[in-house]
């Protein structure tokens, strides 16, 4: 990759995770193509790439839309390894999907072995306020506990759709800069990460 003399825009790899049917694909498609897809068809694993301007700098975003239905955690591991940032999506109309975010979070931390991995908790289907099952408070307190931002979106009305992707990219970018610094300074700061992992267990 270093052979590229022509400056390639930075590539940020984002992974959508969450239970089946919470709207991961809908968010992705809304962000990619400005369209809302009403028909539901379970995703296997789809990837998308798009050039965007992030704070005046041209970057590429690579979105991996994973299967909510995947039954086997072992398969999910392989997807998560390649991610630099995660949008953990649940539906505010479905408590089960909110509970499932715990499991996703744990798996991501385990796979990435990193407690500070760029991560956003996203409550989707914000337009369906009359069917809300997960209160704002509940979601916010969980996000606080994890030390991650919480954003409510609606893939249907495009509310906050750009925001979640751009916020995540900013975190990934900040994280990458920090890593470079760390690497230049005194080698990799592995110790910190390891320690955090212990906290989890």
């Amino acid at each position: 990759m270093k052979k590229n003399n022509v400056q390639q825009p930075a590539l940020h790899k984002v992974i959508m995770v969450g239970s089946g049917g919470v709207g991961k694909s809908a968010l992705t498609l809304q962000f990619m193509y400005d369209e809302f897809v009403e028909d539901y068809e379970p995703t296997k694993a789809d990837s998308y790439r798009k050039k965007v301007v992030l704070d005046g700098e041209e970057v590429q975003i690579d979105i991996l839309d994973t299967a909510g239905q995947e039954d086997y955690a072992a398969i999910r591991d392989n997807y998560f390894r390649s991610g630099e940032g995660f949008l953990c999506v649940f539906s505010i109309t479905e408590d089960d999907s909110f509970q499932a975010t715990m499991e996703f979070r744990e798996q991501i931390l385990r796979v990435k072995n990193d407690d500070n991995i760029p991560f956003l908790l996203v409550g989707n289907k914000g337009d369906l306020t009359d069917k809300r099952k997960v209160s704002l408070n509940e979601a916010q307190s969980r996000a606080q506990e994890w030390g991650v931002p919480y954003v409510e979106t609606s893939a249907k009305t495009r509310d906050n759709v750009d925001k979640v992707f751009f916020d995540l990219m900013r975190e990934i970018r900040a994280r990458k800069k920090e890593d470079v610094k760390g690497a230049n300074g005194r080698g990799k700061e592995k110790g910190r990460r390891k320690k955090l992992k212990c906290n989890l267990l």
């Binding site: 296997k44 694993a45 990837s47 998308y48 790439r49 398969i75 392989n78 997807y79 390894r81 390649s82």
Partner: peptide
Amino acid sequence: LCNLAVVNIKDIKNAFKLLAFPET
């Protein structure tokens, strides 16, 4: 296969990718 993930690339025609960390 245990360490391999297959991803369907939507915006390149007929393409898919193999994620075999750290290689893509």
